[in-house]
Amino acid sequence: MSRAGALLSREVALAWGKGGGPLVSLGFYAGTATLLPLATGPEPARLAAIATGMAWVALALAALLSLERLFERDYEDGALDLIVLSPLPLEIVCALKCLGQWIATGAPLALAAPVAAIALGARPELAPLIFACALVGGLAFAFTGGIGAALSLGARRGGLLTAVIVLPLFVPPVIFGGAALDAFGNGLPWHAGLALLCAYAAAAVALGPLAMAAACRNALS
């Protein structure tokens, strides 16, 4: 098996099976999506108006959950030392870790997003766009989240620090995705929002690994 393939399957296996995985993220997502209408009131008209927005914000929060262990686990047990000692550049390693994270938790959350939005009262015809936004947004969440996870390596209460670093980076994708969904729901042109979301995700995939690799090297030295 190639190095990259071996690492990706390890990352997916670790994110999927050991220490929570998609079930915990999905459970958290369902919990958050249920909690929001309890606070805003149950009138269907009001709920329907904000359903997609709530589903979208809950998704961003659920994406935060599993970030803590992305690098911390390998840092604590010494695996990161050994992973660095390889011909594969650390930037590629970081990208593969985030990709594994996206496959194991981002994709299941993207499947759950339309269900949650419709349950909250969104119109069913929004479902494909919600799924697309959640899938692309999940990629942006994983790759910007990885920056926070790498920067907080070695810090006590690293998970909390990760969330504080990452939440501002989640603002643009939340705005772009929310704008696309809102525009689609109101019959307005929605392509721009989705295009901006894709652009942000692409930038995160391209630039995020550089920042993560630098942060990992700094934490190890």
Binding site: M1, R3, L14, A79, D81
Partner: peptide, 30 residues
């Protein structure tokens, strides 16, 4: 990257994975 092995106190082994999974991964990785 290609010429050295490091074996220390921190062995990089994941408690929840089987010995086979870990050895197979590290063998492929190195």
């Amino acid at each position: 990257a290609r010429g050295l092995h490091l074996v220390g106190h921190l062995d990089g082994l994941k408690p929840a994975r089987t010995a086979r999974e870990e050895l197979t991964f590290w063998s492929a990785w190195t």
